[in-house]
Amino acid sequence: MAISGLVVTMDDAGVASVLAALRADPRITLGPPAGVRQPVVIETAGPAEDDAVWAWLRSIPGVRFVDVAYVHFDQGEEHDHG
């Protein structure tokens, strides 16, 4: 299990489309936004999937930055990624 708390910073113009993309993914929970900065929590099976979701977030048009505020990985699964 991997749970991470991220901040997605969006372009002004991209807020609606980015939020729509985020809402469509059941692994993502959205928190109360602060302007163009959207707090999210990602819940996945392990670090590899967490990495993949993180990379995907960065690739969404309209996303400027994805910053990490919190990461939790359950033990023993970190080597699954390899």
Partner: peptide, 21 residues
């Protein structure tokens, strides 16, 4: 898991509200 999620969310919310990254 719910507890960790809420911790993760509080961290992200605090970070999003902060003045720096």
């Amino acid at each position: 898991r719910e507890f960790i999620k809420s911790a993760a969310m509080s961290a992200a919310v605090a970070a999003a509200a902060g003045s720096t990254r």
